[in-house]
């Protein structure tokens, strides 16, 4: 059981490229922290620094209150699940799981007990004698998890562990990972570029961009109060609609609420829009005329792709819709569902 503390951690590669530019995160015991961001944002580098696979250029990384900058991955008591699983192809499932324990000199019967118990938990018991190439993608993923769990380390590190699975299996494994992590109560760091995975798994969500933390907090807090236009457009699918303000005005807006003086961008989520609604709900809210350019019915809801106020917006409407391409629609958003961002992209 452990906390993970990053203090102003930096990574500079020999060529001078700065991959992580000073990141501080404190992960409380037993919590699952998800690092999310576009590729190249430094999230994997950060994870590998926690693992001890990359040296830390500046700052400190502590596990359980102890600075681990100088010690190797073996001594950090961490376990890692890799994107392509990194199972040893020549070893049976059993040996894949036992290898780390053997290297630590654990007695044979203890190893056997642990491997079998873990295999039971993960429903791998019948696969112990197989080799990795005889397993399906989902099974390999489980073995990779098993290899991490069997060690009962202080910290789990996940490097995009689900990205090689198909969508259905991914959803299933997401739930399973979350349950396992809760059940085992092991502090975890999880890297992904998939915002859905990030939202559903995280106790602590860290949105990263260009080597820096954009926002850190509980997933729903971040969803409701994105700290910047970057976070607003990264978290949520489809992303938040963002329209530029020109000297406090929105071109083509029918009615506009009071706007903070230094706001440069107005934002609202597709799911917070109402179409054609009138009357009291509209008081103090935003009202726009939108021209429909595309309609995507997906069953439970439909997405309308529109042009409004000199930009493009997406509007979500429940169920089927009679709206057709070319229609002009009034789109309304309540005052409390509006977000404002300054010229630097930060929330105001």
């Amino acid at each position: 059981m452990a906390t993970v503390d990053l203090k102003d951690v930096k990574k500079v590669y020999p060529g001078g490229v700065e991959a992580v530019k000073g990141v501080s995160i404190a992960i409380p015991d037993k919590q699952l922290c998800v690092l999310v961001g576009p590729s190249g944002c430094g999230k994997s580098t950060l994870l590998r620094m926690i693992a001890g696979l990359e040296t830390i250029s500046a700052g400190t990384c502590s596990i359980d209150g102890k600075v681990v900058n100088a010690i190797g991955p073996t001594e950090r008591d961490i376990a890692m699940v890799f994107q392509n699983y990194a199972l040893y192809p020549h070893m049976k499932v059993y040996d894949n799981m036992a290898y780390g324990l053997r290297n630590r000199g654990m007695p044979k019967d203890e190893i056997d007990k642990r491997v079998r118990a873990t295999a039971q938990t993960l429903e791998l018991a019948h696969l112990l004698e197989r080799r990795p190439r005889e397993l399906s993608g989902g099974q390999r993923q489980r073995v990779a998890m098993g290899r991490a769990i069997v060690r009962s380390p202080k910290v789990f590190l996940f490097d995009e562990p689900l990205s090689n699975l198909d969508a259905k299996l991914r959803g299933q494994m997401r739930v399973e990972i979350k349950n396992l992590q809760r059940q085992l109560g092991v502090t975890s760091v999880y890297v992904t570029h998939d915002q859905l995975e990030a939202m559903t798994l995280a106790d602590v969500l860290v949105v990263m961009n260009a080597g820096l933390v954009e926002q850190l907090g509980a997933p729903l807090d971040i969803y409701e109060k994105p700290a910047s236009t970057f976070v607003a457009s990264f978290i949520g699918a489809p992303p938040m609609n963002l329209l530029p303000l020109r000297s406090g005005q929105l071109e083509g807006a029918v009615s506009l609420p009071a706007i903070p003086t230094n706001a440069a961008t107005i934002g609202f989520r597709p799911e917070d829009c109402e179409v054609g609604a009138d009357g009291a709900a509209a008081e103090g809210g935003l009202r726009l005329m939108a021209r429909v350019q595309g309609v995507e019915p997906v069953g439970a809801e439909s997405f309308l792709y529109c042009e409004a106020a000199g930009g493009r917006i997406v509007v979500r409407v429940p169920g089927r819709t009679a709206v057709a391409v070319g229609d002009q629609l009034p789109v309304l958003t309540r005052r409390e569902k509006l977000h404002f961002f300054g010229g630097d992209g930060k929330r105001v």
């Binding site: 890692m80 994107q83 699983y85 990194a86």
Partner: peptide
């Protein structure tokens, strides 16, 4: 040989010789 295999071995507590004997040679 994928780099992740080397990393997995390091996380599993294998140094250069162990990696050579347990993983590289059999492969």
């Amino acid at each position: 040989i994928p780099g992740e295999l080397v990393e997995a071995a390091r996380v599993d507590g294998a140094g250069p010789w162990r990696f050579f004997w347990d993983i590289l040679l059999p492969l």
